[in-house]
Design a protein around this nucleic acid. Structure first.
Lengths: 254, 254
DNA sequence: GCGGGAGGTGTATTTATTACACTATTCCGG
DNA sequence: CCGGAATAGTGTAATAAATACACCTCCCGC
């Protein structure tokens, strides 16, 4: 059977196809948070087969009248109560045998949330949700390790070129906290002076003229992300797009 | 009905789900080629409703026992006869109404082929396949404009950081041809001297000590992509990964 | 042999990245 | 109230990368 081109997508083919081929699509959401200097991911312990007892990414089948992005947002909201957070699709995973019970293609998303805003939801599954340090995650259900890695890689890439870090921090933060966040995401150490120079040169931080309280040392200044200015820059066509320095294959245009 | 977490993915739910919700998934493939100084994309004229007579990306439903990537490869091979070409998944498109006849989630891929290797296949649909200059594509069927744009953006991004251009050129090429290719992909002009300096500093080109023939001017030297060296570099952990220069948010590590 | 046409080449300037170490401020305990 | 612990905060010099820019070369065909 060749379904192709002209034949593709006409009604009869589609019905036929559906009749002999049961399938479903789902979304899986890698929910990132940042706490205690560690990048974390929210996992759910499976209470049923397959993979009963294993940790898995939160996910769900996509509803008939639901856009793909909406499904990912719903998973997030049902689990955390949060809406309007940063959410980005990464890619689809569709190996034939990725799901032991049937053919399920899943689309992976990641989201960035302020972990202190996360409230344990009353839903029954919530008690089985738990934050895991990204370094300590191992052996997830299904192909979820692969999905997690893909999402983490995407986050690493994004964070270098767009001011995403702020999505993971409370509204007021210190430069050191911000640096630790970047270090956790990039899995590397950064030079303090260079980091500050770079971040401040973006002009996207508002100096609140406030300082930390309750610390046993010189308190750090607090900053706020200037979302308005960021959005204005983006709207005016200012690009936070990819430029690279070393080993670049093509000269950057001026 | 809440299908979630614990409940998610068990057999009963999946069967139920399938019974009341007919759906399908497909792949669409943006096939890029380069000819006459222009970046081209291979489109198919639809011979049936919906969108009869409109140009569309080649695509197909994913077969039951076929990995997602394999489906994309099959679409490419059926259309062009080519295997083992560069093929990369970009993302999934899953708006509820993206397909007028039902719920179809599609996963977009792009591939890079040497256009002169493309042979018109004997299949019936082949006569309706045609290369279009990317600048002249407009008003495709379904959401295929959006898909094309996403794939083109991804290609632009990739070509800056990985030596992909060679996939689109014949085995032997001149530096000017290579530059024109990059210009077509990046939609910008590049400085000849800087481009050559950069490309040659990669050390991924083999100078064949041959020259063009049959041109009415000084013939250019021919080069070949050093695939072995490239693969060795990748294997040895040399990274062609993203680095950016201007407006970078985080200092690059040494 | 000369005119057309693309091929090929180098340097100086500007900008970005990196490396690097000490002083400042606050809290706390003795 | 003094000293120590702990983190905050700051600048400059060296290196590396990106950019801008113009002329001579070579081959063909007439």
């Amino acid at each position: 059977m060749l379904i192709f081109a002209d034949e593709l997508y006409n009604e009869q083919e589609m019905t036929e196809f559906n009749n002999f081929f049961k399938s479903a699509f789902s979304v899986d959401n890698v929910i990132f948070g940042f706490d205690e200097g560690d990048l974390k991911v929210l996992l759910i312990k499976r209470g049923a087969e397959p993979f009963k007892g294993k940790w898995a990414l939160p996910g769900d089948l996509v509803y008939p009248n639901e856009d793909l992005d909406a499904a990912a947002g719903r998973v997030l909201e049902e689990l955390t109560g949060l809406r309007e957070v940063y959410l980005e699709q990464v890619k689809a995973f569709g190996a034939v045998n990725r799901h032991p019970l049937g053919r399920v293609i899943t689309v992976a998303y990641y989201s960035l949330i302020k972990i202190n805003k996360y409230v344990v939801t009353p839903a029954s599954f919530a008690q089985k949700a738990k934050w895991h340090s990204i370094a300590e995650v191992n052996d997830l259900a299904f192909d979820h390790n692969e999905i997690l890695n893909a999402c983490f890689d995407r986050l690493k890439q994004r964070v270098r070129t767009r001011p995403l870090g702020f999505e993971l921090l409370p509204p007021k933060f210190t430069l050191t906290e911000l640096q630790h966040l970047y270090e956790a995401i990039l899995e590397t150490e950064l030079d303090k002076r260079n980091f500050r120079k770079k971040i401040l040169s973006m002009n996207l931080l508002i100096d609140l003229d406030e300082t930390q309280e309750g610390v046993a040392h010189r308190p750090a200044k607090l900053f706020e992300f200037d979302r308005d200015r960021y959005e204005k820059l983006v709207k005016d066509g200012f690009s936070f797009e990819l430029k690279e320095s070393k080993r670049k294959l093509v000269p950057t245009q001026s």
